[in-house]
């Protein structure tokens, strides 16, 4: 009986709030679920963005960290929340969870509001590796795909290794033989690389700055269209081998499916304004995060493409 009472109360609360939502939103704090722990890269970018959103929307935007199970818990939290605009969350590469049977996320479970960041994957080897440029490395992998220990810089089949495997596919490597090894985050992977346990680590460029400065790690190429600002001595894949392969991780603001278009438009507008603000741009640049804006429409289309591309690569790897 109590439960019934509660759900009735919640339901009436929802209906009344939906009616007044478009013009009044937000009348209370807007929660931002970040699918990574406090103090990490995602946490940082979202805290920067939350500060801008707070100023634009006139309500606090508290960041809530839910990093469990590579973020599956956080995604589940906000996609199953009421689509009233008061629970938003980080939207980053998710297709692998569905394709590996860990969760059942589909593009239609999300409202892809706006993307604000993209960080390219990069290919790192130890400084004394016998492969000092990407062309030689690809030739080596082609000759014997199974002899390389390749770290995904985190969980496998995710943002760092999928573009790399996609590149190998394009270069005609037998990807079913690859030896991809998961790691507890990029720091752990780089530690393994330094200790000689691995041949290749895939992760972003800023994460390797310290070890590259120490002369332990060498970055062969970055998987973007242009060189990255934080270290412009690293060539892009296109400059190294002539063909362009790009990919990596990206971060955007998402919400549960079925949000009010007027609310979506207001958040989209606030994000669009934020990526042009001096304070935000400086904050992102200082730590080597790229700014890449996609509006609601483009981001929604991109999310579907992300699912198709991930599926293509995973199928190729398992020999389908």
């Amino acid at each position: 009986m109590n439960k019934l009472l509660i759900s009735t109360l919640v339901a009436t609360g929802l209906i009344s709030s939906t009616a007044t939502q478009a013009q009044d939103w937000p009348t209370r704090p807007v929660q931002m679920v970040v699918v990574a722990g406090a103090g990490g890269g995602s946490d940082y970018t979202f805290r920067l963005l939350a500060a801008e959103l707070e100023a634009a929307l006139g309500q606090p935007v508290p960041v809530i960290n839910q990093a469990q199970a590579s973020g599956i818990v956080g995604y589940t939290t906000y996609t199953s929340a009421a689509p009233d605009g008061y629970t938003l969350g980080q939207l980053s590469p998710i297709a692998q969870f569905t394709l590996l049977g860990q969760a059942n996320f589909r593009p239609e479970n999300f409202t892809a509001i706006a993307q604000f960041n993209a960080d390219p994957s990069a290919i790192h080897v130890s400084a004394d590796s016998e492969y000092q440029d990407l062309g030689a490395l690809i030739a080596g992998i082609k000759a014997d795909p199974g002899s390389f220990n390749i770290s995904c810089g985190g969980t496998c089949n995710a943002s760092w290794d999928i573009p790399f495997v996609s590149m190998l596919l394009g270069e005609g490597v037998d990807v079913t033989k690859l030896n991809l090894i998961p790691a507890q985050g990029s720091a752990a992977a780089l530690q393994e690389l330094a200790s000689g346990g691995l041949d290749i680590v895939l992760c972003s460029v800023p994460e390797t700055t310290a070890l590259a400065d120490a002369g332990v790690v060498k970055t062969l190429a970055v998987m973007s269209d242009e060189r990255v600002a934080i270290n412009d001595s690293i060539p892009t894949v296109k400059e190294s081998i002539g063909t362009s392969y790009v990919g990596g991780t990206w971060r955007g603001v998402g919400g549960p499916a079925g949000m009010d278009p007027a609310v979506v438009a207001r958040i989209e507008e606030a994000v669009a304004a934020a990526v042009k603000k001096e304070s935000f741009v400086k904050g992102m640049r200082d730590r080597g995060f790229g700014i890449a804006y996609r509006n609601h429409e483009d981001f929604t289309r991109f999310l579907t493409e992300h699912f198709t591309e991930t599926e293509r690569v995973l199928n190729a790897m398992s020999g389908k």
Partner: peptide
């Protein structure tokens, strides 16, 4: 080396990065 020894150090490194002080040999 910018590689945290434990969970506490990991958070502190993250904060240092945020402040533009990049841990590492430099």
């Amino acid at each position: 080396f910018g590689i945290p020894g434990d969970a506490i150090a990991a958070i502190i490194i993250g904060v240092l990065f945020m402040k533009g002080v990049n841990p590492g040999p430099t």
